[in-house]
Design a protein around this nucleic acid. Structure first.
Lengths: 217, 217
DNA sequence: GTTGACTTTCAACAATCGTTGAAATTAACT
DNA sequence: AGTTAATTTCAACGATTGTTGAAAGTCAAC
């Protein structure tokens, strides 16, 4: 009763997105069938096709839903760090922080939806067939604004160095949020992949130091 | 004629591995059918199952084949950098270099097999269902030796910091070799994903600076 | 040249896949 | 209450999936 009431509370369309998000995150696009999504969402098989056209449309809708939210939050964080900066502009550390901190802000610890989403993004980012196109489409317009801020913070940087540094950041970031559990096994429990706050607090100085080494001339 | 002669030169079992490697790299495990592999390898459908048991066995064989080679080359590079070091032991930069340089050494520019392999590894590394298990199985025994060397180079480091730093390195590394083309689009051609030498030359100081910032106390 | 082990082919299995047209139900609005 | 539009269900389509048993072929050793 409690479960079916909870399921009935949210609309079917959102239930489909939630179920697809979780399943795509775990098994990838091709590893999930429309029937499995429908089953998990407690919905008829044909309904996903009705709402999203086809499987690919469903996949895109899953990606887009939280991309819009994350982009807005990141933009606000960037504006805020600019406003709080001295006349010299925000530091590299502050800019990196504005990029990373919003990923933890969305109730990450409680909301498993966001966790699934970041796991999915990690897969998409390093996927040959989607990494270039989809990440560019959904995230790079905003990333460019962060790159502009970094160019001001590191005015003597070679642009190619800056882009490579962002690429390294992107790889470190998405793998960390992929939650594969590898670091738990490698470190034998010394470092825990669930400790996203610890990862975040280390990633900011790690990445900023890399930017400075290559781009602070 | 020339093509079929070239195909006939290599044994069928290797042709299957090559074809599977290329296809898995592009479309992932679930995105490739046994029929597509057989077609690409110019081989009967049932032959892959005969040699490797089933689809999963084929996947594992693809991963294992070059993992053994890469692990040996990396181990040799680590030993060499230890031998060439002062009495204080090798620097962080030298150790990172010994980890990265072998990925370029295997005729990377010419041999598309290695390119496909690294694209596949990138996907596996950030995949939820395989990242933890398979990467640990195939690579972490050797990674531990690199971690030991890093502990000597950074004797005052907190172990948890060290493991997180390696995790960031792993993410940056695999995304770079994933070859998704995203950096080309983001940078509008200023940075090129084909330029693996340029990426390597930047990644060593970037990562080493991060290690030093967090672990050099 | 006959044996025996290994390799390759062929044909087919049951299961699952994404998609869709038509019917049934619900919602919205006058 | 009556009409229209949006949503949901049902049933089924043809195509593709991984796997396998049995037959055919290949090769080396004696």
């Amino acid at each position: 009763m409690a479960e079916s009431a909870a399921k009935a509370k949210t609309k079917r369309k959102d239930r489909i997105l939630d179920a697809a998000e979780a399943l795509f995150a775990k098994h990838g696009f091709e590893g999930v069938s429309m029937r499995r999504v429908a089953e998990e969402a407690d919905v008829d098989l044909a309904l996903s096709s009705y709402h999203f056209g086809n499987k690919r449309g469903l996949f895109d809708a899953v990606l887009l839903r939280r991309a819009e939210v994350l982009n807005e939050t990141r933009l606000a964080a960037l504006e805020r760090c600019k406003a709080e900066a001295d006349e010299g502009g925000p530091s590299v550390e502050a800019i990196i922080n504005a990029f990373l901190e919003p990923m933890l802000a969305h109730g990450y610890q409680e909301d498993e939806g966001w966790r699934h989403y970041f796991e999915l993004i990690a897969q998409v980012n390093s996927s040959f067939e989607w990494g270039g196109q989809l990440m560019t489409k959904y995230f790079d317009p905003l990333v460019r604004k962060f790159m502009d801020a970094l160019k001001e913070a590191l005015p003597n940087a070679d642009p190619a160095d800056l882009y490579w540094c962002y690429h390294f950041l992107s790889g470190a970031l998405t793998l960390t949020f992929a939650h594969t559990g590898r670091i738990d096994q490698l470190s034998e429990g010394v470092a825990k992949s669930e400790d996203m706050v610890g990862a975040y607090e280390r990633m900011v100085p790690f990445v900023a130091a890399g930017f400075r080494r290559l781009c602070d001339k």
